[in-house]
Amino acid sequence: MGIDVELVTLEKPEAVSIRDAYGTSIDRDVKRIRTLSLSQIAGTKSHGVTINTHGDMLPFFRHNFAKNNAITYCHYPIAGQLIDSGDSSYYNILQNMNLSTTTPKCRSMYFEIARDACNKMMTNSTVLTNSEFSRKAIFKTHGVDSTVLHPPVDVDTFRNAALSSDARDDSILVISRFHPSKKIENAIHFAKLLRQNELGSRMNIVGNISPDGASYFNYLRHLVRCYGLEDFIRFEVNASFDRLLGLMRISKAYFHPLPGEPFGISTVEAMSAGVIPIVPDTGGHTEFVPAKYQFHTFDQAVEAVAAALDAPASERIQISYFTQKYSTANYIRGFQKIVAEVSDIGKKPLEQTPVISMPKRFPESMAS
């Protein structure tokens, strides 16, 4: 769009991981990335447009923000909940420091600053979100009407790699970061029920794990042993992108364990690959997953899996092409339009510049 961009993050990104995903073409931009903490938010430096891509967690506000120069992408209004609960891990994320170095009074004051910044950010910017489900939650929490801009999903890569596969068996796929907030134990409880009903040949649970997720992962492995499911459930930790595509080629059903998922990027990825999604009947994914594959109870989920395992190839193709609306190209077009509508910046280049294609990347669903 002909716009100069300055990148600012809460933490310095891992340049090697970014290079592996996007190549070396953005090395210069990555090296120029600045970092900030909440205490720097009151600074005076301004830009034509400021875009906060993580407004659900980062309460970033400057005194000159307005709806015509600031865009906040809020995936779900969780920051206020974390602030109200005094969540220590969230405090560490914001402050980039250890809690033991501050007093309770200092932490309380810091959270008050964060709460004030969060409220002002939401009311003094153009707010975007990922689904109607999240839009309603934002309005209920902040009284702000946001615009739905679905996240970018590399649907073509998944479709081209797996849709036409003739190697599918009765395996069930789960994709999620190994973290307590993802409720992966629900997948294990459900696997026990599948075994009892003699449904499915295997459940593959794929995802990334960080150092602070080790204890939760050990709990999941213990749960598998308690249920005697060692021969049914297989964990694929920090799997490569090629390995993920390989699992999508052999899977018939995808199970999402978390009710209330704001959108569900991994669900769209699985659908693009021709894997039938089985999801809770609460959350953003209810806006694109067929009703017959949504469940309220695990018994209903068992029936949905049975239907998914018997689904014909024609249904897999139909489900795959339904996800085209969530493509990266559509996301780029949508974001360009919003930037041009919010500000005078980019209006002329928007008319002249073709939509660019994003480089190959690792799937966001495994890391987010």
Rank of each mutant, 00 (worst) to 15 (best):
V5Q: 12
L7F: 11
V8C: 07
K31P: 00
R32I: 00
T35Y: 10
S46N: 09
V49A: 13
T53E: 07
G55T: 11
I78Q: 09
I83L: 14
I83H: 00
Q95A: 12
S100G: 11
S100Y: 07
T101F: 07
T103D: 03
C106F: 13
F111E: 09
E112A: 03
N119H: 12
M122V: 02
N124Q: 14
K136L: 14
I138W: 01
T141V: 10
D145T: 14
T147M: 14
V148H: 05
R159E: 07
N160V: 03
S164C: 06
D166W: 01
D166C: 05
A167S: 15
R168D: 03
D170P: 00
S171E: 07
S176Q: 14
H179D: 14
I184T: 08
E185Q: 13
H189T: 10
K192C: 06
L194I: 08
Q196I: 03
R202L: 13
N204T: 11
G207W: 01
S215W: 01
L220G: 05
Y227D: 11
Y227L: 14
E236M: 07
E236D: 07
V237C: 07
S240Q: 04
L245F: 10
L245P: 09
L247M: 08
I250P: 01
S251H: 03
A253Q: 03
Y254M: 05
E261H: 06
E261K: 06
I265M: 14
T267I: 15
M271T: 09
A273R: 06
G274E: 02
T282Q: 15
E287T: 13
E287C: 14
A304I: 01
P312R: 00
A313G: 01
I319P: 00
D344P: 08
L350P: 00
M366D: 00
